[in-house]
Each structure stands twice: as C-alpha cells, then as structure tokens.
Write a protein that binds this DNA or RNA. Structure first.
Lengths: 160, 160
DNA sequence: AGCGATTAAATCGCACACGATATTATCTCC
DNA sequence: GGAGATAATATCGTGTGCGATTTAATCGCT
C-alpha cells in the first residue's frame, strides 16, 4: 500500500463510508429495483406495490382491522388510512366500523377485490422468473431477510 | 391432507400468494426496518436516509452531476432535484451549472458538508452492532443483494 | 356511575419516489 | 450555420412513509 493509499484509508475510516460497502444501500437498492420490477405486473391489476401487499394480507384472512394490517406489514395508520381509502375508492375493499368496538375499522375485500385474487396468482411466478437468482440463493436470501426482519421487529417493540 | 386442505391449496395456487413466502415482502420489510434503524443515528447529523446516501456518494468523489448521483443511487432527477435543494438549503452542498455544459448541474459538499463526514464515520459501525447477523451472514447477504442489484440494473437498461 | 388512562384511527406536515411532461443546452448533419 | 434530434434538469401530479397530534371509544379503578 502506498503512503497516499494509507492516507486515504485513514481519512475515510477504513473505507467504512464507501457506498458499495453499506449493507443498508444493498438492501435499499435491491428493494427498490424489485419493487420496480413488480410495477408492470401490478399495473394491469390496478394496484400499486403497497396496495398489492395489503390485498395479499386480506386474501389470507378477512376481515382485518387497520391495526392488524399495520402489524402484518409494518405500516402505521398514517400510511394505511389513505391507502385503504384509495382501495375503497377503486371498489376493491370495504371499510366499516366494528359494531363490537367502534374504535376499530374492519377492512374486507369486496367481490371485485376477491375476484382480483385469481389474476394475482400469476404474479409470484412471473416475478420468480425475472429474478436472476438460483432456487438455493432465493431460499437462502429469503431466510436471512426473514430472520433479520423478525429480530428487528422484536427489538423495535422494546424501548432501546 | 384433508379434502378441505387440498381445496385451499388449489385456491391459492399452492400458497404462492402467502405474504411470508414473497421474496419481495422480505426485501421490502427488511429494507424499511433497517432504514428505520438508521433514523436515530442520522437525525443528529441533520440527514434523512436518502440524503445520507447522497452525501456518501459526494464524499467519495466530488463534484458530481445530478445524473451521476442518480446513476449511483438509482434515482432520477424528479427525486434528486428537490432533495438536493433541501441539502443546499441546509448548507451541506452547493449546486451550480457546469460552465462547460450548461445543461449539467455540479453538486459538491460545502465546508460544512465536508466536515459532516467526520461525524458520519461513526454510523456504519453503530449500525453493524445493531444488526443481529453474524459476520458471515452479513457478507453473504451483502454479496447476494449486490449481485441481484447489478443484474436487475443491467436488465433495466434494456428494452424488455 | 364516572373519571382518567389507554387504545384505534384519522389527520397534518414534510420528505421521498416516479411517470409524464416541459425547458433549455448541446449535438448532428446537411 | 441552422433545424431537428438528443441530452440534462426541472416541474407536476399522485402515492407512499412516518413523526406528531387529534378525536373518539373503551377500559380500569374506585
């Protein structure tokens, strides 16, 4: 290593600030790119990517409260309320106060929203085909990310 | 498997639509959580997470055009222009037209922006400590995500 | 029963993110 | 050297995200 190189390393703390070394950027970048890859698949369904995620949750079990959707997706009511109103305006879900507890809002797919599920079935396979990863890599990546998310959620719920 | 279960599997295309099986959601979720983890570290520096990424790029080499920043980060001018104006308003970067080509805008850290780098050096290590992954897992994850991003960027630049 | 604490959504303000379009400068080619 | 093509930013409209606050309903406790 030349003197100039040593100096450079010293300056940037061993290259710790290099963009290509930041795990955060790798995640951020991959996530945006994959989301972008979904766009042309979801547009024909009339869904944005977060709206698609909400519908996935609703198709699994319904009705759900806003809070349950938020818990499943890691979003709060400030994000979900307007998003759900847009889905409602598009005729895909209904929103009504829970008679048993008027604080809660029950969200449920309409007939149109339920029917959309059939068309959505093609999406995961179409995506898998476009991702340049082997089956093993995919499974491995999914596992690591899921564990990471689970851990972070747990620590998020605690004070520090 | 009971008949009812077979029916269910048939209905949801082998569970392909389950949220927890979507690689996209694993990515989306992990990315949001990690970004959220940065917030308390970046707030004292007066930076949002995308602003931090821009500063990382500028600290590596400067000046840069808006286009170069966009290429490095995968963002377009519609996102960058307002973000850069906010950084400029905060006194962290300067923006001026390139005299050699008036279409381009050269972005460069101010003295204040350059000085911020010293404080930013603590961020990567503080983050690494908070991520519940082993060194190996981190390296592995980083490698997979980087390859994924590189591939997707390449295919993105092509027509289909 | 009733009052303060807690909980669930909604609202507000600000900051990304991006498709589409507009604006201005440079380039190309005759 | 001038007209049309191309390139680099900027602008506009819509849709997330989220911290902070507000509103309304329920709970807990006396």
């Amino acid at each position: 290593m030349t003197t100039a190189e040593k100096q450079k390393v010293k300056q940037d703390g061993g290259g710790l600030l290099r963009l290509d070394r930041q795990i955060c950027f790798a995640l951020y970048s991959a996530s945006s790119l994959v989301t972008r890859l979904y766009r042309p698949l979801l547009e024909p369904l009339g869904l944005t990517y977060p709206q698609y995620l909400v519908m996935l949750v609703l198709w699994e079990k319904t009705p759900r409260t806003v809070g349950e959707l938020g818990e499943a997706l890691g979003l709060d009511s400030a994000t979900l309320t307007p998003l759900l109103k847009r889905l409602e305006a598009g005729g895909l879900v209904s929103r009504k106060r829970d008679p048993a507890d008027e604080r809660r809002v029950l969200v449920e797919p309409t007939a149109k929203g339920a029917a959309l599920r059939e068309r959505a079935k093609a999406v995961p396979r179409a995506m898998a085909c476009q991702l340049p990863l082997s089956q093993d890599e995919l499974i491995n990546l999914h596992g690591t990310l899921s564990r990471l998310s689970r851990s972070l959620r747990k620590t998020e719920r605690q004070p520090g």
